[in-house]
Simulated assay, not measured.
Amino acid sequence: MFATVLAGVTVFVLGQFILKLVLEPIVSLKEQLGLLSAFCLRHQAMLTNTNATPQIRDELRSLTGLIVAKRRAVPFYKIVARILNLPNEREVSKACHLLNKIGYAIVPYKQKFGPIVHEIDGEIYDAFQVARDLDKVGELLKVNLRY
């Protein structure tokens, strides 16, 4: 009788350990990717025109940082990413770098007086490049960011 109770408690504790340590961070990461997708789809016109409010720019930067943080919270990420078809570490890093570039390219719309062109990382960065980078981020993170 005691062995049965001990085995039951052990199974419960191990199940909770796996749930809290592995599964919940994965779900949290996937939720964050979903929030990024919803954000980009909701603000697609402003993002691709590099013309948005400071709040939208700050929210994009915040979402980007949270994706990196939540990816790091998943233990054994390399293995988990392969099993669950998640983006690998390099893809997440590259996608977040592109999202930061997009955030940098956004100019508050009250300050915009014509086409805005930036030079970022030695390349011309305009609305067309933002649209291409959003597509690339979508491919890297395996989410839909544009209609």
Rank of each mutant, 00 (worst) to 15 (best):
L21Y: 08
V143R: 02
F76W: 07
Y77S: 09
L145N: 00
Y109G: 09
G15P: 02
H118Y: 14
F39W: 00
V27F: 09
V22R: 03
P115G: 14
V137S: 01
I102F: 14
L134S: 07
L35Y: 08
R57Y: 03
R42G: 00
F128D: 11
A73T: 01
E24G: 05
V143F: 00
F113K: 13
E24A: 07
I18M: 10
Y109R: 09
A95I: 12
A69F: 05
Y109L: 10
P75E: 01
A105M: 06
N100M: 12
L29Y: 10
K136Q: 07
K136M: 13
A127R: 12
K78I: 15
A131K: 05
L6W: 10
V22I: 12
E119W: 07
A127K: 07
F76K: 10
A3G: 13
K30S: 06
F128N: 15
V80F: 00
T4Q: 11
E89Q: 10
E123R: 10
F128P: 00
T64W: 08
A3Y: 12
S28H: 10
V137W: 03
L23W: 05
F2E: 13
E139M: 10
S28P: 00
P25L: 07
S28K: 08
Y147P: 01
A38F: 03
Y77H: 09
V92L: 00
L98F: 04
P25I: 03
G138A: 02
N144D: 07
D58H: 12
R71K: 10
F113S: 15
V130W: 06
R71P: 01
L19A: 05
F39C: 07
Y125I: 07
V92F: 01
I56Y: 12
E59T: 11
V92I: 13
R71Q: 06
E91Y: 02
S37W: 05
L14N: 05
L63Q: 11
K101Q: 14
L141R: 08
K101R: 15
R132S: 13
I83E: 06
D135W: 01
H97K: 15
K30Q: 13
